[in-house]
Computed example of a mutant assay.
Amino acid sequence: MGKISIDEPRRRLELALRPAEPPTVEEVLEEVSRHGVLRGPVDWVFPAWATYVDYATRRITETFRLSEEERGTLLNFRDTMKRLLLEAWMQAKEKLTTLYKAVAEGTYRVEGNKLYTPDGTWIYIGGATLRLKIHGVTAKAYLPDLLKLPRNRLDLLQLGWRASDEGEADSRPFMQTAQPWQVFAWIATIWSSLHIHRFSNADTPGGKHSCVQ
């Protein structure tokens, strides 16, 4: 396929890579309150998620009576999430930079709905949002039983998630979301071993997505 108009992908890549100041807790909470998701340049979105993880962890320790063991499990969950965010951030920025360089220099190619660089890095450009896959960023983590509810009451909460945003893969429930509050709200109803995966939207308004199983 020959060259196509690349103006919109170029604009979105420029937005995703524009410099950004570190987010404050107040900015992060305002963004989540107004939009549900965290949106902005790659150097703002990933630190903003990490800031939210810190905030949520602190609020959990203030709200729930945790044993020392439960507190340690919670802090390990926080640290695992932040490590994955850092890994995804570095990978996303490297790929976005490579993509933008190829677009700026005219060395890209388009096949179907994907834009490729000479080294094979690609981004999906076929919809309203550019989508960039992040590979190999995964970990197993645990969240302590925060709610301490009887099984029958937990089943009702889980039923609500299954009727809305929860999916199933290999007989295990999963949540794929761009909303940071959903990660903690959903995990609190299952409190079992979790496999956390991350991938990113390169489109500035799109934010960053996580998948938890």
Rank of each mutant, 00 (worst) to 15 (best):
L156H: 09
T204H: 12
G167M: 03
N201D: 10
P173E: 03
A202F: 03
P205C: 02
S164C: 07
D155M: 11
T204Q: 14
A185M: 06
Q176F: 08
R162H: 08
A178M: 10
L159M: 13
L156W: 09
Q176R: 14
F184Y: 08
A178T: 14
F184V: 09
W181I: 06
W161I: 05
P173A: 03
D203V: 04
F174I: 05
A188F: 01
F199K: 08
A169F: 14
T204Y: 13
R162S: 13
E168G: 03
L156P: 05
A188H: 01
I190F: 15
A188I: 02
S193W: 07
M175N: 06
R172A: 12
S192Q: 14
T189S: 06
F174Q: 03
L159Q: 14
W181C: 01
D203A: 12
S171G: 10
Q176M: 11
S164H: 08
R162G: 05
A169V: 13
I187E: 06
P180E: 02
W181Q: 09
Q179G: 06
D155P: 01
L194I: 15
S200C: 13
S164M: 07
L157Q: 06
A202S: 12
F174W: 09
M175W: 05
P180Q: 00
V183R: 04
D165T: 11
S193A: 13
D155I: 08
L194N: 02
W186F: 12
G167S: 06
F184Q: 00
E166R: 02
R172F: 13
R172V: 13
H197Q: 12
H195D: 13
A202N: 00
E168S: 10
S192R: 15
A178P: 06
A178K: 12
E166A: 07
W191I: 02
Q176L: 13
P205R: 00
L159C: 08
G167H: 05
Q158V: 08
R198D: 03
S164R: 07
F199C: 11
S171W: 07
S193Y: 07
H197V: 10
W181K: 09
W161K: 05
F199R: 08
F174K: 04
A169T: 11
H197D: 14
G160S: 09
R172Q: 14
L159E: 15
A188E: 02
D170E: 15
I196G: 00
I196H: 00
M175G: 03
A202L: 14
D170K: 12
A178L: 09
A185K: 04
H195P: 05
